[in-house]
């Protein structure tokens, strides 16, 4: 494999993501886990940026780093002390978690080795924002207005539900 600048950056980002992911699942402290997860998500955004998917990268940072993680932190702060005692877990949970992990790993490895990855030529051109906008709101074939609207309806339902829960009655 040719060792050019992009490859070095890719390896660096991957190492960061793997290390942060491992730390996120091994730490006992929920706040630390959230913070490590943040670095995984930063790494993902970095991967999008080296692929020139600038819009996706910015969305990744906004939605995950600025939105989801902040939500996680809020939730973790609201549910209690921030740390939970995980030393006494039942054997059933262990087996369930182990099975899920093994299944996920097997599936991922299988997909990686069987999928035909298309060759990507560097440098790929940056997708213009106009195209993204038109594709997102377009009604022709391979456009996304229906999923977009379905997601917005889902968000509306979430908001109504949240209001219903929060309403004083």
């Amino acid at each position: 494999m040719e060792l050019n600048t992009l490859t070095i950056i890719f390896i660096g980002l991957s190492l960061l993501m793997v290390a942060a992911a491992l730390l996120a699942v091994t730490t006992r402290n929920i706040m630390r886990a959230t913070t490590y997860l943040l670095f995984v998500l930063f790494g993902t955004a970095g991967l999008y940026f080296i692929l020139h998917y600038t819009f996706l990268g910015a969305v990744q940072v906004t939605v995950y780093a600025g939105g989801i993680i902040v939500l996680f932190v809020f939730a973790a702060l609201l549910i209690g002390k921030g740390t939970r005692d995980l030393t006494h877990t039942s054997i059933l949970r262990y087996t369930a978690g182990f099975t899920a992990a093994i299944t996920g790993l097997a599936l991922t490895v299988y997909l990686i080795f069987t999928h035909q990855f298309p060759e990507v030529q560097h440098p790929v051109s940056v997708v213009p924002m106009k195209l993204i906008g038109h594709t997102m709101m377009g009604v022709e074939k391979y456009n996304f207005v229906l999923p977009f609207e379905v997601v917005s309806v889902l968000l509306l339902a979430c908001m109504v539900g949240a209001l219903l829960i929060a309403r004083k009655r």
Binding site: A58, V59, T62, V70
Partner: peptide, 15 residues
């Protein structure tokens, strides 16, 4: 996506 990127990067300062 400059302006959007600005919003993205300024959004995790709160964290």
């Amino acid at each position: 996506v400059g302006l959007f990127f600005i919003m993205a990067t300024s959004s995790f300062g709160v964290l």
